[in-house]
Amino acid sequence: MNRFSYVRAASAAEAVRELADPAARIIAGGTNLLDLMKYAVEKPTRLVDITHLPLATIEDAPGGGVRIGALVTNAALAYDDRIARDYPLLSSALLAGASPQLRNAATTGGNLLQRTRCYYFYDPATPCNKREPGSGCSAIGGLNRIHAILGASENCIATHPSDMCVALAALEAVIHVEGPDGARAIPMADFHRLPGDSPEIDTTLRQGELITSVELPPPAFGQNHTYLKLRDRLSYAFALVSVAVGLNIEGGTIKKARMALGGVAHKPWRKPEAEQALEGQAPTLENFGRAAELLLQGARGHGHNDFKIELARRAIGRALSQAAEARPQSQTDKRIR
């Protein structure tokens, strides 16, 4: 690990001031940042410890939703009674991710800012446009089994690794941030970005902005939800493909549908057309198949990851069936039904 100075921020404003230095990094759980520092992918000259800020509570939000402090750990969030009751999709996605030890340390804000798990990004001996802009993409034409099938560019085919973020996308969360120009709110759909020609930039956060909380709108899906995660081993592995679904079904008709995919793109993948195609329709396999085609429109493999397109198509169908029948995927009994 490189040498750095350390400061404990006493307020969000102080943390924001510290971030004026582009070589400074915020640290909270540290589970991703310290890992990247050990690989010399991240080389901050200053770490700003925000763990003493009062951002670790889950509170009512105006309008009937809930506001989750940026420092709430993944474990505290997943097992919170209210979240488990009103937003079981979020609890489920969190418990599908990482390990109990990591969930005890990792925070809500840090999870949003996770970097990709692309092997080349982690390996400073290889070219990577995300790590070293302009150096090239080793995954294109290289080993790309875990890489993106949607929204990629000729510069980067990395995926966003988070499970939590896939659920937050389907739940239409809003990210609250504080920065040098004050506070603002960013809809989850706009928070992460596609790689385009600047894959080194993961999110739409501006220089100096600090995530303070994540707001969820009022609960909308009852038990008609699921988080289906497919991976190379049953636990403690990143998704090859994951699907978060929330449905609101009344009288045999889908009134509202929200779907997001994980493991397939540089951000949780949503497509409003696919959701609209379900709304007003009956929850049938035929309709689910049509929605899957729309959600996967434009999907493209890069060789090793070609299988993900068909895997995703089937996973979407299965997840929609699970949600429609109120049989959310168990994150303990991994059998997929």
Binding site: T31, L34, D35, K38, A75
Partner: peptide, 23 residues
């Protein structure tokens, strides 16, 4: 030393964490 194996697990304030990924 990268939070992948759990051999470094300790309890901090009663909670298990990976001590390798903690300053």
């Amino acid at each position: 030393d990268h939070g992948q194996c759990g051999a470094c697990t300790v309890l901090v304030d009663g909670k298990r964490i990976n001590s390798c990924l903690t300053l």
